[in-house]
């Protein structure tokens, strides 16, 4: 038992030595240490890729690595909580998205942090519109035909969703409201099985990201009736926008940006914004992201803040209409 005691002492000693090595930092010389960018999703996905591509030049400019920490779960609220509760010195940032800043404020009523007030937006990096996809065997060729068919046959068509409360799910729910049609929701946990069932014709309608859906559209397995942005996509200029196809006032995007803890000094926010905007405007990054279906935005902090506000108001009624239970 005496040796056990000694062992604990040794451990404690090592810990104490390590603790003194912590060092302080000031806002003027920001960033003087590696920056932690917390992602609300797992490693290896599209969001992970977007974060890495857009942060690459920022790393070079700052001469400090940006370490990506994946914290998936609970609609992004685990990642948000980490950042909201971290030191507001610009060393810990959140890779904000539709889930953390458009859905969570309405869907999660009992959070340990305030999803809006605890953050200071840095920049809206990019957004990606959706395709309104149908199975080609349905014989529907335009958005107007789809709305017409759905109105004549209420509750006959199935639409797929990938992830409850995801942009792919809520875009379709929003479409139901705006077009005044009744489609039956078939929930999927991820996009892959939803795509398979759509190709096989077991579900008929699906709102999916342009980048994922495009190869299937080009191969003729799926039909894209419209794109949900205000402009046509350079990747598929033949697909009309929803407005051109006859449904006004209907735009949906998945979007991604960077946010910092609320009390981060404005000087740090400005420095971060400048670095990210410069990175996103570089031909290398912007062309890479454009080829993956993103619209590069690179907004100011104020524009991003306003955008978040608009998104929350836009989606709150959709979330209620979709019968999603407000949860803790």
């Amino acid at each position: 038992m005496r040796s056990a005691f000694r062992h604990i002492l040794l451990t404690a000693g090592a810990v104490a030595v390590a603790a003194t090595a912590a060092f302080a930092q000031s806002a003027d010389t920001y960033p003087n240490a590696p920056i932690k960018l917390v992602l609300p999703l797992g490693a290896g996905g599209a969001t992970d890729n977007l974060a890495r591509v857009s942060s690459g030049p920022v790393e070079t400019k700052f001469g400090q690595p940006i370490v990506i920490e994946n914290r998936p779960g609970a609609g992004g609220s685990l990642a948000s909580a980490v950042v909201a509760q971290s030191e507001p010195n610009g060393q810990t940032l959140l890779f904000a998205n539709f889930a953390t800043h458009a859905v969570t404020p309405t869907l999660f009523t009992n959070l340990s942090y305030d999803p809006v007030k605890d953050f200071k937006p840095v920049t809206l990096i990019a957004s990606q519109p959706h395709f309104v996809l149908v199975n080609p065997d349905l014989g529907i060729n335009t958005l107007a035909e789809l709305i017409d068919y759905a109105k004549k046959n209420p509750g006959k068509l199935n639409f797929a969703s990938a992830g409850v409360g995801s942009p792919l799910h809520l875009a379709a729910e929003y479409f139901k409201i705006k077009a005044g049609v009744d489609l039956v929701h078939v929930p999927y946990k991820s996009s892959a099985p939803a795509l398979l069932d759509l190709i096989a014709g077991r579900v008929q309608v699906f709102f999916d990201n342009v980048s994922t859906a495009l190869p299937h559209v080009q191969a003729g397995k799926l039909k894209a009736l419209a794109i949900t942005s205000s402009k046509r996509s350079p990747l598929a200029p033949e697909i009309p926008t929803v407005a051109e196809a006859g449904l006004q006032d209907f735009e949906t995007y998945g979007w991604w940006g960077v946010a910092a803890p609320a009390k981060t000094p404005p000087a740090v926010i400005a420095k971060l914004n400048a670095a990210y905007v410069e990175a996103l405007k570089s031909p290398e990054v912007s062309s890479k992201l454009a080829s993956q279906g993103y619209d590069v935005i690179a907004s100011t902090p104020e524009e991003f803040e306003a955008y978040i506000g608009k998104e929350i108001t836009k989606w709150a009624p959709v979330i209620k209409a979709a019968n999603l239970s407000p949860t803790n």
């Binding site: 603790a19 912590a22 240490a33 370490v67 920490e69």
Partner: peptide, 21 residues
């Protein structure tokens, strides 16, 4: 270079990690 913390917070972990990259 996992994002697992190596030492107490503030420990210059990632500086070494950057070196390794």
């Amino acid at each position: 270079t996992l994002s697992i913390p190596v030492g107490p917070s503030g420990w210059p972990v990632a500086a070494f990690a950057a070196f390794w990259k």
